[in-house]
Design a protein around this nucleic acid. Structure first.
Lengths: 205, 205
DNA sequence: CTCAACTATGTCTAATCTGACATAGTTGAG
DNA sequence: CTCAACTATGTCAGATTAGACATAGTTGAG
């Protein structure tokens, strides 16, 4: 019944109570690296969670114009979150635009592709350093029952992911950088569409 | 103007013409590993692409009840696809449910978590073997201008990704398997919510 | 012969999510 | 003082997507 976004909110509130505004800033960085939501999604979801008695709130006069609503988990919310954590995840279909571009990369100019992958490589290297910095200011092996374990384990995943992505970008740049195909390039790009498609088995995907 | 789904369709049609039905089967396996769509999404999108003159179709009496519509790229569609390939990808926010569960993993029973991560590990190992099989029946280094290069490069990415994921699952299982915290477990799980939250700096996310 | 699986195209509702719109007080830089 | 940035909560229109509904002929197993 509760959506995954709902559980994301519960997971943050389990650390400590927050306002909707604080939740939306938390969902951009660093938690936003694996789950994002705008405030326009968070506010209605909080109302739903309150209706479902999984969170409650307390009105506090904040520094801003309006009263802050500080949300916290109810016992019911905590129980639901605990149950959800160990359930197998929904199979969300992967939709990776870079891989899709790669699937069609044979149609493009290698020099332009190299530029694209160099930019990607830089972005992933930047994110990796940011992760490494975070790891440096973190205890080595937090106890499983402490929130720090959640931070530590997600960070480990992020570092592993960025390393994978960096390796792949470097491999692509290497592949595209060989001279052999740069020479063939012009022929290939000017070749007509479907040169002999009815001679090709459709099973080749 | 054209959506990413539109480019996914163009990318498949660039290999060779297909019907909407064939597109939807292609979008489940193996292309579905990085881009999925149901036929209920594909048919309307094809109508849009026809209206935009990026694809055209030819009616063919198929084996089924209705005429097959065989779609193929127009020159305009091919040009649009080529341009899109080298453009920087949209920043799609990551939404990884397993990592979200990991973020909240400190709340759960380590034994149940191990079960969860073992299942994930097995799933990723299965997918990796399927990728390795595909690689075995594939030329070593296809020319950049041939569709086989697209297959080869996406497969390389998939193998790298599964290796990262497998490494992370194994690391998690190792972390959770230590006895030290199994002993602490009962204390932690029965600890009350927010034991001293107002003593904690809210900056700790 | 019957039934299930496959081929083939389409529509519709509901959920999720983005980006814009709307309002409004505080704080600090120049 | 003024203006931008920040804090703070909310709504709404539109795009994307999943899952169900709808129809209907062919093919092969038992």
């Amino acid at each position: 019944m509760t959506s995954t976004l709902g559980y994301a909110i519960l997971a943050i509130l389990a650390r400590h109570p927050r306002s909707g505004y604080e939740l939306s800033t938390a969902m951009s960085r660093p938690l936003g690296y694996f789950w994002t939501a705008r405030h326009s999604q968070i506010h209605p979801e909080l109302q739903r969670l309150v209706a479902a008695r999984q969170v409650s709130f307390e009105q506090v006069p904040g520094p801003g114009p309006q009263d802050k609503k500080i949300y916290s988990l109810t016992d019911e919310g905590l129980a639901a979150l605990r149950q959800w954590v160990v359930e197998p995840p929904q199979i969300r279909p992967e939709r990776d635009e870079m891989v899709l571009k790669t699937y069609a990369a044979w149609l493009a100019d290698p020099a332009e592709l190299i530029r694209l992958f160099r930019d990607q490589l830089e972005a992933h290297e930047r994110r990796l350093s940011s992760y490494e910095e975070q790891r440096a200011s973190m205890p080595e092996a937090p106890a499983h029952g402490s929130p720090a374990f959640g931070n530590y384990a997600t960070l480990w995943c992020g570092i592993s992911y960025e390393n994978h992505r960096i390796a792949w970008c470097r491999w692509m740049i290497g592949q595209l950088g060989t001279d052999r195909d740069l020479l063939e390039k012009n022929d290939q790009l000017s070749a007509s569409l479907y040169p002999s498609w009815d001679a090709v088995k459709p099973s080749e995907s």
